[in-house]
């Protein structure tokens, strides 16, 4: 596999941006600056990064409650994301969506979605639009979802629809092995989720989701297949979240420490650094420069968010409908 230097730079920059965004976001959450619940995705950075490396703004992704990584990999602005999480008017959703509903339609991001599995048919619908318009070569759908969502009926319905209609869509199952506190070994009937693709007559590939090169390669094939009009692919990306289900969750209550240590040793950033420096594709100085720039970006994002205005009270009533003739004001 050959990856251009520009793309290598992009992969590292995006993974590190996600890592530091989640750490910074958590720090701000614990300081009381986030206005609600947040679900960190650090540990899983290689998955959205390796997949979105093949996408453009014309491609659409559906996301989950643990969506910050997907947003960043799809090119969303981290200042506006931090502002959204802090409930500010300058956020992508004017502070009305929050961490679990960050969206940017100008970037092909259909929104983080807090109903497990519910965004999967949205990505199928985006792929249907592409097929309807005959531009599937330049606009595909990617549905990100977790191992928990594989137990949702609508996810299976979506895979069947995409398979029978041969839609340009990728089902990206981020198997971080825990649905909230419930382990996949208990809740999922197989230890090979990718094998379920067989039952829909589509390719299924199990991928080391801690290795961005492996994700990049598998996603490349799936994207190529979708753009060629050959239909959907199910990717199962085995990964691990470093933090709990949500910001205040202590995963040590349901995960063994040796398991956590094993994944820490396979950290996607450390793996990347080791490979590119050993192969002399990037220097330690180049990597450090990227990290330093991201550090500054995070500081700027926090400053921007903290200095941003709150949404005006009229925002309570705006954006419910394009047009509606009854009052939306609550009865008092």
């Amino acid at each position: 596999m050959r990856i251009s230097r520009e793309k290598l730079h992009w992969l590292y920059e995006v993974m590190y941006r996600i890592r530091r965004f989640e750490e910074t976001m958590l720090e701000q959450t614990f300081r009381g600056n986030a206005m609600g619940v947040t679900h960190p995705s650090d540990g899983q950075e290689a998955v959205p990064t390796g997949i979105c490396a093949h996408l453009t703004e014309k491609d659409w992704i559906g996301s989950t409650h643990r969506g910050h990584g997907h947003c960043i990999a799809k090119g969303l602005d981290t200042k506006a994301m931090m502002a959204e999480i802090m409930g500010r008017y300058t956020g992508q959703c004017k502070g009305k969506g929050g961490s679990m509903h960050i969206a940017d339609f100008s970037k092909g991001m259909l929104g983080a979605n807090a109903i497990v599995g519910a965004s999967v048919p949205l990505a199928v619908g985006a792929a249907l639009t592409a097929k309807y318009r005959g531009n599937e070569d330049e606009s595909i759908g990617v549905a990100f979802f977790g191992d928990g969502a594989t137990s949702q009926g609508v996810v299976h319905e979506s895979m069947n629809l995409a398979a029978i209609w041969k839609l340009p869509v990728i089902f990206a199952c981020e198997n971080n092995q825990y649905a909230e506190a419930t382990p996949a070994w208990y809740a999922v009937s197989t230890d090979d989720i990718s094998a379920r693709a067989d039952s829909y007559g589509i390719p299924g590939v199990q991928v080391d989701g801690m290795d961005v090169f492996a994700v990049y390669e598998a996603a490349g094939q799936a994207v190529e297949r979708a753009r060629a009009g050959d239909g959907p692919t199910l990717l199962e990306l085995k990964t691990y979240r470093y933090h709990g289900h949500f910001h205040a969750d202590d995963p040590k209550k349901y995960r063994k420490s040796d398991e956590e240590e094993e994944y820490a040793e396979r950290d996607c950033l450390q793996h990347f650094e080791k490979v590119v420096t050993e192969q002399k594709a990037m220097t330690a100085e180049q990597l450090k420069q990227i990290r330093d720039e991201i550090e500054q970006e995070m500081q700027d994002a926090v400053d921007f968010a903290l200095n941003s205005p709150m949404p005006p009270m009229e925002e309570l009533y705006s954006d419910v409908y394009v047009e509606y003739s009854n009052s939306l004001v609550g009865l008092r």
């Binding site: 659409w60 559906g62 339609f105 259909l110 519910a118 999967v120 048919p121 949205l122 990505a123 199928v124 619908g125 985006a126 792929a127 249907l128 639009t129 592409a130 309807y132 759908g141 009926g153 609508v154 319905e157 979506s158 069947n160 629809l161």
Partner: peptide, 16 residues
């Protein structure tokens, strides 16, 4: 697949 195709219709509506 009512949930599946209504969801797909929402996705199609969101994308134009």
């Amino acid at each position: 697949s009512e949930a599946g195709f209504v969801g797909a219709a929402v996705g199609a509506a969101l994308t134009g």
